[in-house]
Computed example of a mutant assay.
Amino acid sequence: MADDAQAHAPGAPHRCAAPRNAQLRTPQPLPGLELLWSGSVPDHAEEAAAQRHLLDASESARLAALRWPQDRDAYAVAHVTLRRLLAEWLGQAPETVPLLREPCSHCGGPHGRPYVPDSGVHFSLSHTRGMVLIALASRPVGVDVETLLGTPAVDELTSQLHPDEAAELAVVPYEARPRAFARCWTRKEAVLKALGVGLNLEPALTYVGTGAQPAWQQAWLLADVATEPGYAAAVAVRRPDRDPGDHRPLRSLS
């Protein structure tokens, strides 16, 4: 992936020149998706460590509570970069961007979609060891990036998929299952994060498919995102013709 580039919807303002980032591409433009940022954690860890003062008290406490250095680095890169991107977009200092959470749309708890009050910008971030993915959008959005697992681990986790997805995965050649599973899981998490529920909603209830193309969704535009070898990523954005309260997945268990 190329450095110093951004992917944004046609006609969207090219506002975010920093921090250094990587070019990301989806198979087709997604209306409402303004920016996708991806970065390697080792490439950005030193810079993020020097800018941890930009984090608020809650973020700093969560960072300090992480046990492993790799997890602390990934968290710092993700949250420092998110603040810098939002600051560029909103025209204010990174440390002054107020990050709050909506009530969960599934249970009403205080762990729904993060948001910036009165800003009009929607965002989502995901990080795994080694990689960070961030999206800014004009409507609800979710992203997910995951490290590819080994086939034995995939076989253990297949029960968490929708029954139709599990059936699809069962006929995928053994060596190709990690990629197919990762495609499915990142699509699933992207939709659930865009919904504002995350894994508080049973993952098996939502069907997104394991094949080369995501399953069509009634309320969401869903696409895979090209990323570094060894990872899979996806993004979901609410359809422009859908009411904000219409978050139904394509298929669910009866």
Rank of each mutant, 00 (worst) to 15 (best):
E156G: 04
D224L: 14
A219D: 14
A170F: 01
L199F: 11
V145Q: 05
P229N: 07
T227K: 02
A232V: 10
L169D: 06
A190R: 11
Y207D: 02
E168L: 06
V171C: 02
L205S: 01
D164P: 02
P214E: 04
L133N: 07
Q160A: 03
V141F: 05
A182Y: 03
T147R: 15
L133P: 07
L195M: 13
P178T: 03
L148K: 08
T206L: 15
R139V: 15
G196A: 01
L157W: 13
L136F: 07
E146L: 08
E189W: 08
Y231I: 04
A212I: 06
Q217A: 10
A219F: 12
W185S: 15
A153M: 06
G150H: 13
Y174V: 06
D224T: 12
V191T: 04
L169A: 04
V141L: 05
R183L: 14
A182F: 05
A232M: 10
A212L: 14
L136Y: 12
F181Y: 15
P140G: 10
A176W: 03
V143C: 12
T186N: 09
S159W: 10
T158M: 14
V141D: 03
L201A: 14
P229Y: 04
G142Y: 06
A190Q: 09
P229K: 03
T151H: 02
L199W: 01
G211N: 01
D155K: 05
Y207R: 10
T227V: 11
R139K: 13
H162G: 01
F181W: 13
L222K: 10
L149C: 09
W220D: 03
F181P: 13
R177C: 02
A223F: 07
A182C: 06
V197R: 13
V154F: 11
E168Q: 15
A167H: 03
V225G: 08
A167R: 14
P163E: 08
D224M: 11
V171L: 06
G211T: 03
L221F: 02
S138W: 06
A232D: 11
T158N: 03
E168A: 13
Q160Y: 11
T227C: 15
G142D: 07
D224V: 12
N200T: 09
Y207N: 00
L136W: 10
L192W: 05
Y231S: 08
V172F: 09
Q217Y: 04
R183H: 15
A204F: 00
P203D: 01
A153E: 13
S159I: 10
A204L: 00
A204S: 14
A226Y: 11
K188T: 10
P140N: 12
T151L: 03
A223R: 15
P163C: 00
G198S: 02
K193R: 06
W216N: 02
